[in-house]
Design a protein around this nucleic acid. Structure first.
Lengths: 187, 187
DNA sequence: GTCTATACAAAGATAGAC
DNA sequence: GTCTATCTTTGTATAGAC
């Protein structure tokens, strides 16, 4: 593996565990096994390293990676919506570092406009993604046309906050919550 | 106003705007109009100042401040639940600094165990608060007994995440979402 | 392409004067 | 109760050698 990728992966881990501010370039360099100034050969600044990481993560969690419309049919619609959500919840539970890093991006977005735009984009893509998926469900005849947008907002809101709560160590019946939520969509 | 309170209020503002790490004691001292070491007379450390702030904020946002069970009757139950939630959403929209500071606590909670316990406590109190309130609704005969806990989890999740999204500048029909959610509770 | 040496700024904190 | 002076550490970043 090249140094560039090693830096990215190490930064991913350390930013997630310690946060952006509390992770220094020295720490990253030490972990990778290079000198601190060597990082500046690959990235112009700490901030640039951080945003490079943001872009990589955003690519990882695109809506279609979890909810692929092609897999949804009239017969399996509700069950598919439930199982895809459960898969996502499961992934988030196992991959704590991703969740922590995403939180870090959220925090930094209140101070950095470029990061804000990117983070907003991720959420908007989920809102649009759910909305399109539900409309597809309507066209399949398995959902009523009423309040599609509201339902999409609800699903986005919920799956996002469940991740936050899991990271915080709040013990909830997340699977049950998601099941309940989806079943309310198409009553 | 005493210096102690002035430090707290200034720290409140600066921690909210710049975040914990990016707010230095020098900045706080300058804003208050005292010297940096003078802060150490009132607070043993930066961290202690931060947790003192956390305790103050937690007191501010207790569940009962927004959802006072004494105000709920059989006649007004659903409407009261909606209006109390709307009031809370409105407060959060107007008081951005509180929301930002709360986010800061969330982030720090992943690194500081004492903060984690406190933050978890706030969320647990909302979970318990909604649960008790809904059970009260059952005893009044306006709600069915089914899935009370799940419904309480849903309300907590939603009102919390709506705050996050508002801070992020995501444009949603928050009032409509809350109305929809509450109306689904007691069908 | 990567490292050594170093610059420069700023942080949190302490001792002791007033 | 507040300040001056200072310590110690650590951060990001640059210049230039190899």
């Amino acid at each position: 593996m090249h140094t560039y990728e090693q830096i990215l992966e190490t930064a991913y881990m350390l930013f997630a565990r310690n946060g952006y501010e509390k992770t220094s370039l020295s720490m990253i360099a030490k972990e990778v096994g290079i000198s601190k100034p060597a990082i500046y050969y690959h990235f112009p600044s700490k901030e640039a390293l951080f945003t490079a990481l943001l872009d990589a993560v955003c690519e990882e969690i695109r809506f279609e990676k979890y909810f692929n419309p092609a897999e949804f049919t009239a017969d399996n619609f509700t069950e598919k919506l439930i199982s895809c959500g459960l898969k996502m919840i499961q992934d988030q539970r196992e991959n704590t570092e991703y969740s922590l890093l995403m939180k870090e991006f959220m925090i930094q977005s209140t101070r950095d406009h470029q990061i804000l735009i990117t983070v907003q984009g991720v959420i908007e893509s989920y809102l649009k993604g759910f909305e399109n998926l539900l409309r597809y469900g309507v066209s399949l005849g398995v959902l009523s046309e009423e309040g599609i947008r509201t339902k999409a907002e609800m699903l986005t809101l919920a799956i996002d906050q469940m991740d936050n709560y899991m990271t915080l160590g709040i013990q909830l019946d997340y699977e049950g919550l998601w099941r309940h939520l989806v079943s309310q969509i198409n009553r």
